[in-house]
Design a protein around this nucleic acid. Sequence first.
DNA 1: GCGATCTGAAGTGTTGACACTTTTACGGAA
DNA 2: TTCCGTAAAAGTGTCAACACTTCAGATCGC
Lengths: 245, 245
Amino acid sequence: MASASQDSVFSLTDTGRSVPLSKVLCDALEAVIVSGQMRPGERLNEQQLAQRFGVSRGPIREAIRALEGAGFVEAVTNRGVFVRQLTVVEVRELYDVRAALFGLAGRLLAERATPEIIAQLEGLLSAMELAAANRDFDAYYPLNLAFHEAIVDGSGNATLAAQYRTFVKRLNLFRARSLVQGGGLAVSNREHRQMVSAIVARDPGWAQETHWQHVSAAKDRLLKVVRSEAEQASNQEDQQQIQGG
Amino acid sequence: MASASQDSVFSLTDTGRSVPLSKVLCDALEAVIVSGQMRPGERLNEQQLAQRFGVSRGPIREAIRALEGAGFVEAVTNRGVFVRQLTVVEVRELYDVRAALFGLAGRLLAERATPEIIAQLEGLLSAMELAAANRDFDAYYPLNLAFHEAIVDGSGNATLAAQYRTFVKRLNLFRARSLVQGGGLAVSNREHRQMVSAIVARDPGWAQETHWQHVSAAKDRLLKVVRSEAEQASNQEDQQQIQGG
DNA sequence: GCGATCTGAAGTGTTGACACTTTTACGGAA
DNA sequence: TTCCGTAAAAGTGTCAACACTTCAGATCGC
């Protein structure tokens, strides 16, 4: 667990709680995992966590069950639970499902977008274009996040929004974290503009298509990099084999 | 909990278990809920369940956390957990997400369908047509289930399949259980035939569209009935108001 | 008779302890 | 040195008990 032995970022000593420890711990642990403080494959030691958070193992275990169901960790009987490690295949699967969900969000939003939401999206779009022009990734990233959040929330389907968020978080478990978020700012923005156009036109089919494609394109960009990485690695391996033999 | 005080349908005394009680209980409880043995709104009494299954409350609570995350139950602090009760709005949301997922399944299947899967689907289709012609609902239902399962599994996306199944189960929590499953056999089969055609043609776009529409149509059929039901009820209420006043 | 308050029962939230499994470290034999 | 077997250590799975909250019924005052 990176560092931090008792950091009170997760204050659960504070209140005459009305919310159970298991819930608080679930959020805390999810944050630890999604933020990358714990790496994929790393083990969640119940006793250690209990000590760190100053609680007993019961609530810890309950929290872990919830995380397991959401796909953040994987439990092995009598051996412990581990931060889920995504294979390339699973990443592709997750992206495809995410694309379908985001496409639905676009469709629903196109059917019911208010002038306020459209204005909000256009504002974020402009800000992102500015950031992209300046190659200011630190500014771009949160805007991009807010843009997607606005669309998903704007769809009016809370079930969809919850699912979508879980999938996005799960994708953060992939080793190449930076890649998951990154990818050509300019290209991405061109896609964003099309998405907004479809919503402004109130064309559900078009909106679904553009939203779907946006995620699908991100998937392709990521997989392309991963594949070339794998190729390089395999080449290096061959090199070593030759040198070693 | 309907009846049943100690029925050993859920035998967990049987084995020198290598699988934790919490997992066994999770499946058992999910079965109890989805099968309708426990009704929406009903409370899951931890002590009672512990006694019934012959275990302590710890594993019961862990199982419940998992069910909570999957959306089968709802926990209220210090008051207990209750079988989730779906509103009409939530049913619509679930159907929309399910439609998106099933559309994706159709698309993926169209891209990779083997002759074996196609033969399997066509076999199920014929059997369903026969059952529909005979108005044999008892035969039709499991075939219909198998048909959808085959498509989702055939998509090759395990993440998608798992999600889809959860959503289907969650829809079973809706009060009008029979309606969720029912709806014109003939109409439904016409849609099935189109779906298979799109898969045979290996046309991803068409497949996605037909699969999406199939679920979407089921949604519309259900909501139409629910709305007319609601209307009737409200009319009766008016009647009573008049009679009462 | 009706409502407010009190009291016990029921139930959830949490804890610490015990049993069994897995891992690791140690020591001896080949 | 290396391999294997053994025993301690670490860790998970499960349980029973305690603290606090909520609920239901009885009692008391009006």
